[in-house]
């Protein structure tokens, strides 16, 4: 078993001359050793003492179930103890309370499913730092940020860039050469993620010279369906209806009820309904953020920081990626296996 200090030497030691021939060899060796350690579950006694708390946004079901599963699998592979905790109701005080519980439990590292502005976590991040606890975010970096800010309260950020996701939807629609406007439907007004996606999509569409309008809707598919049907009556030149949240039953029903067979429907995330609709062509594509990675990577990054002092220079983007008819079958297998 390779000791921690030897591995550290491999990573830390750099030849002064820059592109020295030995550097590539060292990196390759380090990678091989790390892969070996991971694949054999080769945790040292010290590794198994590493305790990481994953403070989630909600119960480990559905979307968040993938995060929890990713964190759990990373824990198994790396031989560290992972505990998934979450607030009963997702509010800032409730989530901060959970972080404080993790601090009180003397965690070595905390990964946070961040859902609010950084300002909400500044104090608790400071307390974690004072307690010697590594603190990272399992959520996207600020839009457009690629390189880690040295003053960032989080050691790392792993997630999908939601503004990029919205822009991707807009650009994709533009590339499809749609003839007509786009209605951007938000079933969860007030959700910052959905709003970011909507705003950036509208901006991208407008930049491409396509008319785009935002429409507040509700979670009820019946009401949403009638809303969109009547929007289409008022705006018969509408070519696409995009959902910025993951529920699209109302949009699919509106497409059927309005008789507008050429209406392009798009949405977010992968679920049975989206898979089915993309497969049979009712939905053009869905935007995926590979949420398994949002659980796996924070545990990996925390573990490597705790073991080797490694800090990623870039933020780690898990998405956005497009799933459409061309790759739906491959992706569907991964969904079934629980990795997407």
């Amino acid at each position: 078993m390779v000791s921690k200090s030897n591995l550290m030497k491999l990573f830390v030691r750099r030849p002064a001359g820059g592109d020295a021939p030995g550097r590539g060899v060292s990196a390759a060796l380090a990678s091989a050793l790390l892969a070996l350690a991971a694949s054999t579950g080769g945790a040292t006694a010290a590794d198994s003492n590493i305790s990481i708390y994953f403070v989630g946004c909600s119960a480990p079901t559905g979307f968040h179930g993938y995060l929890a599963r990713g964190a759990e699998e990373a824990g198994k592979n790396l031989g560290v103890k992972v505990t998934y905790i979450y607030p009963d109701e997702l509010t800032i005080p409730n989530q901060v309370q959970k972080i404080e519980e993790a601090i009180a439990a003397k965690a070595n590292g905390i990964a946070l499913c961040e859902f609010a502005e950084d300002a909400a976590y500044v104090d608790v991040a400071k307390r974690a730092k004072e307690a010697g606890i590594a603190f990272g975010s399992a959520a996207a970096p600020p839009a457009g940020a690629q390189v880690r800010d040295p003053n960032d309260i989080f050691l790392f950020r792993t997630g999908s860039d939601e503004k990029a996701a919205g822009a991707l939807t807009g650009k994709r629609l533009a590339a499809m050469g749609i003839k007509g406007g786009v209605v951007v439907v938000d079933q969860q007004p007030g959700d910052a993620t959905c709003r970011d996606r909507a705003n950036s999509e509208i901006d991208a569409l407008k930049a491409a010279g396509i008319k785009a309008e935002f429409l507040e809707s509700s979670m009820d598919p019946g009401q949403e369906s009638e809303l969109v049907v009547n929007y289409l009556r008022r705006n018969p030149d509408t070519a696409a209806a995009t959902s910025v949240c993951h529920i699209s039953a109302g949009l699919l029903a509106a497409k059927a009820d309005s008789g507008k067979k050429d209406l392009i429907i798009t949405g977010y995330d992968l679920d049975a309904q989206a898979l089915d609709a993309v497969k049979d062509g009712r939905q053009a594509f869905t935007i995926d953020q590979q949420q398994f990675w949002r659980g796996y990577m924070p545990v990996l990054l925390l573990t490597h920081y705790l073991k080797y002092g490694l800090v990623e220079a870039n933020y780690f983007l898990t998405g956005p990626t497009v799933v459409d008819k061309s790759n739906i079958d491959e992706v569907a297998k991964l969904v079934t296996a629980g990795y997407r």
Binding site: S58, A59, T61, G62, F63, H64, G65, I247, A249, D271, A272, Q273, D276
Partner: peptide, 14 residues
């Protein structure tokens, strides 16, 4: 609601 979320896994069932 908690039971529905747990049973559906948070995702739509068709």
């Amino acid at each position: 609601r908690g039971v529905v979320i747990a049973l559906t896994g948070g995702f739509p069932i068709i």
